[in-house]
C-alpha cells in the first residue's frame, strides 16, 4: 500500500522569551515524530491540550514549517528548503477546524465562502465555480438554497458541513480534522462523523483525525497514535490499542473515557496535569503522572519501540 502522508522525524521548537530582556528559551512542541498514513485510511491522533497535536496538524497543512525533519504528501514535501509552503490546492492538505462558529467569516454568504478556495490560483472560472459550489453542497447534504444564507443562519452541525464543504473545494486528497465534532451536540456529532466516513468512501480521502476523546477517534480511525507532551507514546491499529493498551497513559485515557460510576468504584487513574513544555520532566515525560513510575523513568527517555508486529510504545516497562 502506498503512503499518502509521511511525517519524517519532525521536530518543532518555538523560541520563547520569558521577559522583555530575558534569554530565549526553546519550547519543544513536537519532538521527533514519524508517522505515515496509507491512501484512503484514517490515522487518529489523540492527546490532551498541550500535547502538540495541533502543532503537528499545522505542519501537515503547511501553516507551520518544521524546525527539522519533513512532511511529505504523496512523496512531495509540504515545505521547500526555505520553509515556504510548496504544496497548495489539490496536492496539499486541507483542514476542518474544531469551532464551526469562528471558522466561517460571518459577513460572507455560503456561496462566497465555498467559492473562495476556488479563486486562488490556479483559478477556477465562473460557470464552473458555480457548479462546483452546488456539487459541494450536495456532497455535504445541504440544500442548494443555502447558497445565499449567512453562517449565523445555520446550526452548529450545519456550519460544520459548510466548513467541510469548503475544505473539499479544491479536491484535496488529505483532510486534517482537528477535533471536528467536539464543539457539537451529541446527536449532531454522529451526523458529522457519519458524513466524514461517507465522504471518505466516496472520494477516497485520507484523514488525519485529531481528538482528545478516544471514543470518536476510535470510531473513525484505522490506526491510532497517542501523543503526550510532544511525543508519541503509543501507536498501533485502533481496535488493538483500545482493547489492549500498552502505555500507562493510554490506559489512563481509556479508563477516564469509560463511564464507570464513581459510586460503583469508578476511579481516576491520573493525578496532576500535563507539565509545561518549557520545563519537561527528565527521562520519560509522563513519569510525573504515571502510576507505574520507577527509578529508571527519571534517567532515560524511553524510545518508541515495536511491541508486536504492528504496534509501538514508548515505555520502560516490558
Amino acid at each position: 500500500m502506498t503512503e499518502l502522508l509521511q511525517i519524517q522525524d519532525v521536530r518543532k521548537t518555538f523560541g520563547i522569551r520569558s521577559s522583555f530582556l530575558g534569554r530565549k528559551k526553546d519550547l519543544v512542541a513536537v519532538e521527533g515524530i514519524s508517522l505515515r498514513i496509507p491512501k484512503g485510511r484514517t490515522l487518529g491522533l489523540v492527546g490532551e491540550s498541550g500535547s502538540g497535536k495541533s502543532t503537528l496538524a499545522n505542519m501537515v497543512t503547511g501553516m507551520l514549517a518544521p524546525t527539522s525533519g519533513q512532511v511529505l504528501i504523496d512523496g512531495q514535501p509540504v515545505h521547500d528548503q526555505k520553509g515556504k509552503v510548496a504544496l497548495r490546492g489539490e496536492s496539499g492538505a486541507q483542514i476542518v477546524f474544531q469551532d464551526p462558529y469562528s471558522s466561517l467569516n460571518p459577513r460572507m454568504p455560503v456561496a462566497q465562502l465555498l467559492a473562495e478556495p476556488l479563486k486562488v490560483a490556479p483559478k477556477v472560472l465562473m460557470p464552473e465555480r458555480e457548479q462546483r459550489v452546488n456539487e459541494l453542497l450536495d456532497q455535504v447534504g445541504l440544500p442548494r438554497s443555502a447558497r445565499q444564507k449567512y453562517p449565523h443562519e445555520f446550526s452548529g452541525g450545519q456550519r460544520q458541513r459548510i466548513v467541510i464543504a469548503r475544505a473539499l473545494a479544491r479536491r484535496p486528497r488529505l483532510l486534517v480534522c482537528d477535533e471536528p465534532v467536539s464543539a457539537l451536540d451529541v446527536s449532531v456529532q454522529s451526523q458529522i462523523l457519519n458524513l466524514l466516513k461517507d465522504l471518505q468512501d466516496e472520494l477516497g480521502l485520507t484523514y488525519l483525525f485529531i481528538g482528545h476523546g478516544l471514543e470518536s477517534v476510535g470510531f473513525m480511525s484505522d490506526e491510532i497514535a497517542v501523543m503526550y507532551l510532544g511525543r508519541i507514546v503509543e501507536q498501533g491499529p485502533a481496535h488493538q490499542v483500545l482493547a489492549d493498551p500498552v502505555h500507562p497513559y493510554t490506559q489512563a485515557l481509556i479508563s477516564s473515557s469509560e463511564a464507570i460510576p464513581f459510586h460503583a468504584g469508578g476511579t481516576v487513574e491520573l493525578t496532576g496535569e500535563i507539565p509545561s513544555p518549557l520545563n519537561p520532566p527528565s527521562g520519560c515525560v509522563f513519569r510525573t503522572r504515571c502510576p507505574l513510575v520507577t527509578d529508571i523513568c527519571a534517567e532515560a527517555v524511553p524510545a518508541l519501540t515495536p511491541r508486536s508486529e504492528s504496534r509501538m510504545a514508548a515505555c520502560h516497562r516490558r
Binding site: 451529541v186 476510535g218 481509556i254
Partner: peptide, 21 residues
Amino acid sequence: LLDSAPHMGDTRDRLESIPGI
C-alpha cells in the same frame, strides 16, 4: 442519544444519528 454516541470498542461502521435538528 445513547445510540448516537460512539463508545469504547465500538465496532459499528456507522453511528445511529438523529435526523434533523
